Simulated assay, not measured.
Amino acid sequence: MNQARRNPLNMAAMHGALILYTVIALFPVFVILINSLKTRKGIFREPLSLPDAETFSMIGYQTVLRQGDFFLYIQNSLIVTVVSLFLILLFGAMAAFALSEYRFRGNTVMGLYLALGIMIPIRIGTVAILEMMVQAGLVNTLWSLILVYTAQGLPLAVFILSEFMRQVSDDLKNAGRIDGLSEYTIFFRLVLPLVRPAMATVAVFNMIPIWNDLWFPLILAPAEETKTLTLGSQVFIGQFVTDWNAVLSALSMAILPVLILYVIFSRQLIRGITSGAVK
């Protein structure tokens, strides 16, 4: 009885903490949005106030839409982010399933080898990666970014998903084998639906770094037709003068696509975080 009474309290406290965290996390977004609708004087004089008749201005959005192909930058970022997440989840889940399901010599060593990418930053190999992309003829293509981000996200995906897949019931998988299901059918139809919260968690953890990355787009795909949103927004930041109206407007427009992706994954993410927290 006492345990039953504690559970609703624990759940309420957990949801309250998540709401508070969301408010804190969204406050910088709110500040960016309101300042994107102000004049330069309004931004610096009262950065936390709402725009009024004196400070309201759309000059930042007009500048963004006039200078550069901003919608192309958004399209490039969406393609790179979505395709990279798909490949990370697909190959990461397949590798995690193999490591958790099949016992073979070197299983532990292979798992540790795949997890090394979490500890070793991929930027250390930037020169070697650039040379490989030049030899493969992939410089100034979106595929160069997709391949790099996929390799960057796989270690964490394998590490997280393998732990979740070990918790999937062996009886369920063996029942599928008795019914004549292939290993691919067991993987896609039985195992993946049970680890969706973990996959959503992996997607969110990889989505933000990919969307906001400036380093690899600058090195591998700096051409105008392959610029990502983060790289394209740098045109408004100068060495001596920064067009803050345009920068904040560009950031405001960039928030919407990634916010939609976050909403898509958020429900499963919360389930993954709270899974097993309350018994």
Rank of each mutant, 00 (worst) to 15 (best):
M199A: 11
F236V: 05
K173D: 01
E224W: 06
A221Y: 02
L112Y: 14
G111W: 05
S182H: 12
L181K: 11
S162F: 06
N206F: 07
F240A: 09
L214F: 15
V204L: 15
A223N: 08
V195H: 11
P197H: 08
G153Q: 01
P197V: 11
K227V: 08
Q135N: 15
V241W: 13
R189D: 13
D243T: 07
A128M: 10
F188D: 00
V247T: 12
T185R: 15
E225Q: 09
K227A: 09
L214W: 14
I160T: 07
V195C: 01
R123Q: 15
A157V: 14
L138G: 03
L214R: 07
L145K: 07
A151N: 03
R177N: 05
L220K: 05
V202Q: 08
L229Y: 12
Q135S: 12
F159M: 02
E225W: 01
D213E: 09
W143Q: 01
T126Y: 04
I120A: 02
V139A: 03
Q152R: 13
I146P: 00
I146C: 00
D243A: 06
S169G: 01
L192W: 08
D171G: 05
V148C: 01
K227P: 00
A250Q: 05
V247N: 05
I124Y: 13
F240W: 14
V168F: 12
L251D: 08
I146Y: 04
L194Y: 04
T150Y: 03
D171C: 04
A115Q: 06
V235M: 06
I118E: 03
I122V: 09
L192R: 09
N212E: 12
E225D: 09
S169D: 09
S144I: 04
T228G: 11
L161H: 10
S169Q: 07
I178T: 10
S182C: 03
L248N: 14
G137R: 05
T126N: 04
Q152H: 13
Q167I: 12
P155V: 15
R177L: 08
G137V: 04
E131Y: 14
I129F: 14
R177C: 03
T150D: 02
F205L: 15
E131V: 14
S169V: 07
Q152E: 04
V158L: 02
V241K: 15
M199N: 03
G238D: 07
V134H: 01
L114E: 01
L114H: 06
D171W: 09
G137C: 07
Q135V: 08
F236M: 02
F240L: 08
L231F: 15
T226A: 01
F164I: 09
Y149S: 03
G111L: 14
F216E: 00
K173P: 00
L251Y: 13
L154V: 11
T228R: 07
A250W: 11
L190R: 04
W215S: 04
G238K: 10
D170I: 14
P209F: 09
P155D: 10
E225T: 10
P121D: 08
I208D: 04
L147P: 00
T228F: 04
V204Y: 04
I186C: 03
L181S: 13
G180D: 08
L142K: 08
G125F: 15
T150G: 01
E225Y: 05
Q239G: 08
L156P: 00
S169F: 10
F159N: 02
